[in-house]
C-alpha cells in the first residue's frame, strides 16, 4: 500500500463533490474552499456546491503516468470552467477520443475511478468530466 489513506479520506468531499465557499461579504466563489475569502479577506464564508455543466478551456494527454494510473493512459487532463460561477478545476476528461477535444466542449461532472493502489489497496474515486450526453 503506497497511498496515504488519511490524505484521501480528508479530501474525499472535494473529490466526490465540488465543494467551494461563497463569501457573504463580496459574493465571490472561492475554489478550492478556504476559511478566508481570497478576494476580500472576509472570514464570513458559506459552503457552496458547484453544479451543472462546464466548458473545456484547455487540455493535455498524459502518457508518462504516475504509479497506479497505468491502465488509464492516455490520461486526458483538462481545465474546465463552470460558466455560472466562474470556478475552474483541473480534472480527468473521460469517455472521449482525443480528436473530439476542442475548446468550449460542453462537459458534465460524473464520478469515476481515478487510480488504484495495486490489487489490494484503496481505489480512489473522483469527479471527472465527460462530454454532455444528448437527451
Amino acid at each position: 500500500m503506497k497511498y496515504s489513506i488519511p490524505r484521501y479520506w480528508r479530501s474525499r468531499r472535494n473529490l466526490y463533490r465540488l465543494e467551494a465557499v461563497k463569501c457573504r461579504s463580496c459574493s465571490k466563489i472561492n475554489y478550492p474552499p478556504s476559511t478566508t475569502c481570497r478576494y476580500c479577506g472576509s472570514r464570513d464564508v458559506e459552503l457552496f456546491e458547484v453544479n451543472g455543466l462546464a466548458k473545456l478551456i484547455t487540455w493535455t494527454a498524459v502518457y508518462s503516468e504516475p504509479e497506479g494510473f497505468e491502465v488509464f493512459k492516455p490520461i486526458v487532463v483538462g481545465v474546465v470552467e463552470f460558466p455560472e460561477c466562474g470556478v475552474r478545476v483541473l480534472a480527468r476528461i473521460t469517455d472521449v477520443d482525443l480528436n473530439e477535444l476542442r475548446e468550449g466542449l460542453v462537459l458534465e461532472p460524473i464520478l469515476r475511478k481515478i487510480s488504484e493502489d495495486g490489487e489490494a489497496g484503496i481505489i480512489r474515486y473522483s469527479l471527472a468530466f465527460r462530454p454532455k450526453m444528448k437527451e
Binding site: V71, F72, R92, T94, D95, I110, L111, R112, K113, I114, I123, Y125, A128
Partner: peptide
Amino acid sequence: AGIDEDSVTMGYE
C-alpha cells in the same frame, strides 16, 4: 463499462 468505471461509479450516476 469503461476502464474507469465500476459498480460504484455506475450506481452513483
